[in-house]
Structures are given as structure tokens and as C-alpha cells.
């Protein structure tokens, strides 16, 4: 069986690829730059003797990413797990983005994950497999930055909720991790008010949970409390919080 990781070239995606290779999964890694993919594939092959296939795909510039992933899987064992640690944010995402930049953010954070899930759904259902999505703390409550990103992540959360509802009891497991701060290039250089988790640590938990039933939870778990507080802050307090 093949495990598909979309957004595998950096941060959590790369850590997941490493963890899955260590657990002897055969992998299809998807990312935009073939140079990154070939380096990761070579490394996982040498260190873990893993079978690693790659697909270079620019999610923002591909009309139907799902079809491309499906085509890449044609010659491989059937997929049993799909992980979507894919995401992109911008510092100028403050409500002033043009149509192209907005479309790009929506494509990477929302459209691509949805189309890939839908394309692989029949195979995953047949394999009684697992779909793993990743949300963001940014989606807990809309703020004056990361506006499109947060909206896309909230949309993705809604899609995974529907997916879980639709396939409840049908063998497909739908897991959604609402991520807190991660130590990655997305947060590099930011002054974060709370500690950032190591991608390797989160990846290890995600892989350990792959055989479990559907869920929607925060990762690390203590972020549930933070999200609860942010969600329930009175408006007059929340609007004064640092943008």
C-alpha cells in the first residue's frame, strides 16, 4: 500500500515523510520543487531503505491536483493513507491581497487538499484507509492578519468535518489535527507568545495515530485550552489583542 504525503519538502511534511519511512511505509511524496523531492527521496532510501516515489506539482498552478496525484499512483500500490500537511501563508495577507495572490493562497490551503481527497476517496474507501488533514491555530478566530489563510484553514476544517460525517462507520478514518505553533519556516523569525512544537515530535504523534479511529483534535493537545480561551474571549478584549 502507498502512503501519500502532500507538501513533503519542508516542515511537518518532511518530518512526516521521515517518520513514515522509518515505519517502512512505501511513499508518494508531493511538493513543488523536484530538487527538494529527489533529495528527500534519496535520503529516506539510504537511511531507511524506504521505497519513495515523488511527484513535483505546483498546487497553485494546477487546475486539478487530484487528477495529477491519481495519475502518479497508477503504477504504484493502491493508496491506504493520505496526509495533507500542506500550507502557505504570507505576511501581507491583511485584507489587501490582489485576486491572484488570494487565489494562490486558497488554491494551496483549500482547493488542492479538497480535490486530492476527492480524487483518492474511492481508493481510500476500498482500502479502509485514513485521510489526515491539518488545520491551524490561525483558524480559531479571525484576526487582522493571515486573513485569507485563516479563512482557507477554517474552510478545510469544515470540509474534514463533513468528510467525517459522510463516511462515519464506512471504514474510512478521517483525522484532523489543529496545529499550534510549529518550529518551521512559517514561524521562523516570529516572536511567538507560546512555545513552538518540533515538527518531528508532532509527526511522531501523527504517525502513531494513523491506525486509530477518526478524530478532530489539537496538536499538541494543550493547544485545546489556548484555542478555547481565544474563542471565548469577550470581543472588547479580543479586538485589543496584538494583530
Amino acid at each position: 500500500m502507498t502512503t501519500v504525503v502532500v507538501g513533503a519538502s519542508s516542515g511537518l511534511g518532511r518530518a512526516l515523510a521521515e517518520e513514515l519511512a522509518r515505519a517502512s511505509h512505501e511513499l508518494l511524496l508531493v511538493a513543488s520543487d523536484p530538487r527538494d523531492l529527489s533529495a528527500i527521496a534519496a535520503d529516506l532510501g539510504l537511511r531507511h531503505a524506504a521505497k519513495v516515489h515523488t511527484l513535483a506539482l505546483d498546487l497553485a498552478a494546477t487546475a486539478d491536483p487530484g487528477a495529477r496525484v491519481l495519475a502518479a499512483l497508477a503504477e504504484l500500490p493502491a493508496p491506504s493513507a493520505l496526509l495533507l500537511p500542506v500550507g502557505q501563508s504570507r505576511v501581507d495577507d491583511d485584507g489587501s491581497l490582489g485576486a491572484a495572490a488570494t487565489g494562490q493562497l486558497l488554491a494551496i490551503n483549500l482547493h488542492a487538499p479538497i480535490t486530492i481527497v476527492q480524487a483518492l476517496l474511492p481508493a481510500l474507501l476500498e482500502a479502509r484507509g485514513v485521510v489526515v488533514g491539518f488545520g491551524s491555530v490561525a483558524a480559531v478566530r479571525g484576526r487582522s492578519r493571515n486573513m485569507v489563510y485563516a479563512a482557507a484553514k477554517r474552510g478545510l476544517q469544515g470540509f474534514f468535518e463533513s468528510l467525517r460525517h459522510r463516511h462515519s462507520g464506512q471504514g474510512l478514518r478521517v483525522q484532523f489535527h489543529r496545529l499550534g505553533f510549529l518550529r518551521s519556516n512559517l514561524t521562523h523569525g516570529m516572536r511567538l507568545p507560546l512555545p513552538a512544537a518540533e515538527p518531528a515530535q508532532v509527526a511522531s504523534q501523527v504517525v502513531a495515530n494513523l491506525e486509530k479511529a477518526s478524530f478532530d483534535r489539537h496538536a499538541p493537545r494543550w493547544w485545546a485550552l489556548v484555542a478555547f480561551i481565544i474563542a471565548h474571549l469577550p470581543w472588547f478584549v479580543f479586538r485589543r489583542m496584538d494583530a
Binding site: 518532511r14 520543487d33 519556516n185
Partner: peptide
Amino acid sequence: HVQRPDRYRL
């Protein structure tokens, strides 16, 4: 000022 590239394009 530290850059931490994790992809070739960076």
C-alpha cells in the same frame, strides 16, 4: 539576521 532555508529555492 538568520535565514533558515529548507528548500532549494530559498
